[in-house]
Amino acid sequence: MGMRLELSPRAFAVWRRNFLVWKKLALPSILGNLADPMIYLFGLGYGLGGLLPQVGGTSYIVFLAAGTVCASTMNAASFEALYSAFSRMHVQKTWEAIMNAPVSLDDVVAGELLWAATKATLSGTAILVVMALLGFVGGPLALWVLPLIFLAGLTFAALGLCVTAVAPSYDFFMYYFTLFVTPMTLLSGVFFPLEQLPAPMQLAAQALPLTHAVALARPLLLGQAPDSMAGHVAMLAGIAAIAFVAAVILARRRLLM
């Protein structure tokens, strides 16, 4: 096998399998993914926002909208790459069935990665539409949030797949959420500007992928071009690439022994 990635267009057949399952329950899935971010947005946006003056040059709810889009992208991609992929890998043995066909494990992991990012994009699009209808979107540049969601989806899906590849059971994912996802949500500029944090924590936040997603989404939603765009994109893409390779190596270790 070697360390060379064994990828082929068959990864797309894996993506199509997951898409076919999703299609059967598309509406409840989208509505389910919409409820949580909307509750955050309205609860905090109006409840807390009413107590605040402008934040980052806009009303708090508009400030929070960009963070909500990114956090819900992260959640959607993570859930798919953790719980759903684990079901297919470990419980239903779907991956095993696929690998008896001329599809490599690398293809399967790549298909899962693309699918989780797609699913995050599908629910992110719904959130974006609702926000546009409510008038929280500043201009057509906001459409660039869609490819951004896909990219961030790839990043969080790849990270999630690393965890799935070593998980003994569903319970294991709790650690990932409590030790990584939840702290990241609080430290990446979702709820308040990063500048509020002490300098060392601001620096640490730069290592978190969600920080870079929020830094891009916030100006885009206001209809403005983000500063240092290339750096943020490179960070998200770099983490996605490294985590994908790590996920492949870990999955091979688990399944191809």
Partner: peptide, 11 residues
């Protein structure tokens, strides 16, 4: 659908 999806894995 099981057969359809599986056939796709063979291209």
């Amino acid at each position: 659908e099981n057969l359809l999806v599986y056939g796709r894995y063979f291209g």
